[in-house]
Design a binder for these strands. Structure first.
Lengths: 358, 358
DNA sequence: ATAATTATCGGTAACGTACCCGGAAAGTTA
DNA sequence: TAACTTTCCGGGTACGTTACCGATAATTAT
């Protein structure tokens, strides 16, 4: 309410108001030893009254903090991890008041080569690390060694819940599966069979997705029967072959949930058998090759895992902790976006050029 | 690769390497006048070679910028604007390197009292203003006066496209309507009639929503006929009464799209007539009172306009411009979230306590 | 009692940058 | 050549904070 002097109130103003020196105010504010308890409380009270807000720029200048952050991300599913990287970059570019150096390191695909990178970066003294645990149980000990030496670890896209990571950002995999089941159950009115096509049940939460799918199918769509679960191991040929095999065993499924980004071969196999309009399809992740199938109505819905947002959020969480020491939500579960024909245009901006799949 | 000396390379190191003074380096790096072109290019080359990265902490300390930002938001639709305010607050708290003072000002409801607030704040010299244009054409001249005196204006939740605002953040209203139409068209297989219930066709993009709804209904769901459009003017009694009248005229609509947050009275009217399970409902915005109806399946889908994200994004856009001078996307159209029974839990975190409606 | 130790506080350099001021060098005019 | 203008550059100060070194007062040991 005192709007007369909108001056900056710093440590110096507090010192003047209390009639003591700057050094003492600093000690009092930071619980450093060597200050009379009475003086300390008096300083805190005055700081409160004056509305003291520390100048973070000055602080990090004096401390000369230079955050070194490294991101370990696979090259494999480019349609997902490229936008994620972009999200990290954009968040890093928006940082002010402290210098951050972000290093990007890559390895072939999830669960292959990430451990070697972790070993290597244990030597270098990074302040924070961003990573996607391919096989959570395998990286737990590595994460512990990082956190013990003071390096904060944030998991993105996938989680290692039993590890000592600072935080985790990802979409909720189980709910992704549930959404797929609910959509199929709502659109399909009569009895029928559904199948799922997944990547690798051990990695990237595919297991969670299928659990959620099966559970919701049972409760919200009892008229649909889950007949088959296919693993493609992120191989296009395998996905194509497996889809053909599925159609052989079951010529007319009512719906298919593709929980991996590897959906193009599935579409091709369906198309060649004239099934494209006759089966309700739910796919995962967005990339250029998928657009025609969404626009034509061949795909009922696409569950978009928002890689850009994930990268941005993970980086912000890490920085917020390293710089200000505040710990945001330790576990953030984003809602996947449900892409339909009508809202597709809104997602075509930061679209990755193409899907590069091993 | 030169990992021998990971020292901080600053303006001083460049000066030493070039054998000139710090001041000259500063002038050269910032295109300030009074530098010999040859010296300038030499400095730039050395800076490039040494990998100079300006110390942002030192810069913002020296400049000691203090941003004064004001947000004009209505009290009315609390389920929407309270989370939006929270988003602004969180984004403001995450700002570093520059002190920002955010003032929140409120007025009764959209289109009432906002002009008076704008007039008042023309006197005070704010650096930026966040606002929701109730009636876009009315605020255009006020926005122009702000921008002419150097105050950046960002529109949030609604837009004034023909004004001189710096940027605009909102959900895509037309696509919101399209989503509603597509969902109804996909779920309803046989011929039938649908109705829409809106707030005020003049404000808050309700007109856009209905245009999108009607257009998509015609192309993607020709078996459905739009029979009626009701304006509730954000009054619960009117919404209740109008819904009853609708049922009187048309006892059994197949679907209803409620494009305003004012959906509780509609639900009550439907329930009292035993229509709850028999009509497919699509509502707008999320608040506590709506949860049971979503969980029970009485509502097919809820279009969530992500107020928290809108506030956060709008503030970030404004700050990014005021601090760094970079202009992000002038117009950001967020995708509304489609809330179903299965993904509802993900949206219950930052939920506003209750819906306060006129 | 004095000396030694501790508790409490004041003073100040430095972090890297931006900007102002004055001086030197070069060019221009009388 | 002298006086002046223009161009270019070096030196210095200040931003708010932290960390360190002394200085003084209070307490304890001898």
């Amino acid at each position: 309410m005192t709007d007369g002097t909108p001056k900056t109130v710093g440590i110096k103003q507090i010192a003047a108001a209390a009639g003591i020196s700057i050094g003492t105010v600093d000690r009092a504010l930071h619980n450093r030893p060597g200050v009379n308890p009475k003086t300390r409380s008096r300083v805190l009270k005055i700081a409160e009254k004056l509305g003291y807000r520390p100048n973070l720029a000055a602080r990090s200048l004096k401390l000369n903090r230079r955050l070194r952050i490294v991101a370990h991300l696979p090259r494999q599913i480019a349609s997902f991890f490229d936008p994620l990287r972009e999200g990290v970059r954009e968040a890093a570019a928006a940082i002010r008041g402290v210098t951050v150096d972000v290093t990007f390191r890559t390895y072939p695909h999830l669960g292959d080569g990430d451990l070697k990178l972790l070993e290597e970066d244990l030597e270098r003294d990074y302040d924070g690390i961003l990573m996607t645990p391919g096989n959570p149980s395998q990286v737990e000990s590595a994460i512990r060694r990082f956190t013990e030496r003071g390096t904060a670890v944030v998991c993105v896209a996938s989680d290692a819940p039993r590890s000592s990571r600072l935080a985790s950002v990802s979409v909720d995999a189980a709910i992704s599966g549930s959404i797929a089941a609910e959509l199929l159950g709502t659109v399909l009115h009569s009895e029928g069979t559904v199948a799922t096509i997944t990547g690798d049940l051990n990695t990237f939460d595919h297991g969670e997705k299928l659990r959620g799918f099966a559970a919701t199918l049972a409760t919200m769509a009892p008229h649909l029967t889950l007949i088959s679960t296919i693993e493609t191991h992120d191989s296009p040929k395998e996905a194509y072959r497996a889809t053909l095999a599925l159609l052989k065993r079951n010529p007319s499924p009512a719906g298919i949930y593709v929980s991996t980004a590897n959906s193009i071969p599935v579409l091709r196999a369906l198309e060649e058998n004239g099934m494209c309009g006759r089966v309700q399809l739910i796919t995962t992740d967005l990339f250029a090759e998928l657009i025609p199938s969404i626009e034509s109505g061949a795909i009922l819905a696409t569950l978009y895992q928002r890689p850009f947002t994930q990268g941005k959020l993970a980086f912000e969480t890490l920085c917020r902790f390293l710089v200000d020491g505040v710990q945001l939500e330790p576990v953030t579960r984003l809602a996947p976006h449900i892409i339909l024909r009508s809202n597709l245009p809104l997602f075509l901006e930061r679209l990755p050029a193409g899907l590069e799949m091993g």
